[in-house]
């Protein structure tokens, strides 16, 4: 085994195979091999969440994950279209309606984390929301609007049953 390896995994529902140097992280893999830029490195330390991707349904910081981590895994990025008519899920819709972003750089991470939060805790209170999203930074500080967006989704899902 050398410093490059073959990776086979599922990316946004499609099986893919590619080669990658062992020292690449998941963000580099997605950008350099698949032209997916929704996960982006910012702080480089797993603190800001801009690089969030879901690996086997678990949110990870792509910038702190070696590319090898995705071998054999199911990887989903923000680019995976939602199974709705307009390709946006209710979380994305709520972010737009609530104005829960400004520059948009951190938004993919917040959207993915919100999806996971609501999977694990369908009716979060503000404390749950803040705790779950505390590892995502928004320098434009759209935090109040983000909390409002999460509440909006939870409320709509509850009403829908």
């Amino acid at each position: 085994m050398g410093t490059t390896r073959t990776l086979r995994f599922t990316l946004n529902g499609e099986p893919v195979t590619t080669e990658a140097p062992s020292h690449w992280n998941v963000v580099e893999l997605l950008q350099n091999r698949f032209n997916l830029y929704g996960a982006r490195e910012s702080c480089g330390q797993g603190l800001c969440g801009c690089c969030t991707v879901l690996v086997d349904g678990v949110a990870v910081s792509g910038c702190l994950s070696l590319a090898a981590r995705v071998d054999g895994a199911d990887v989903r990025t923000i680019e995976a279209p939602a199974a709705t008519e307009d390709g946006l899920d209710d979380v994305q819709q709520a972010f737009i309606e609530s104005g829960a972003f400004q520059c948009g750089y951190c938004t993919p991470g917040f959207v993915l984390m919100t999806r996971k939060l609501l999977d694990e805790c369908p009716q979060p209170d503000d404390e749950d929301i803040r705790h779950y999203l505390s590892g995502n930074l928004c320098r434009c500080a759209a935090y109040p609007e983000i909390v409002a967006a999460v509440r909006l989704v939870a409320q709509r899902r509850a009403t829908r049953g």
């Binding site: 797993g46 603190l47 678990v58 990870v60 910081s61 994950s65 590892g135």
Partner: peptide, 12 residues
């Protein structure tokens, strides 16, 4: 654990 780093770090 709830206040240890963040969810993504705790995930891995």
């Amino acid at each position: 654990l709830r206040r240890l780093s963040n969810v993504r770090v705790r995930n891995v």
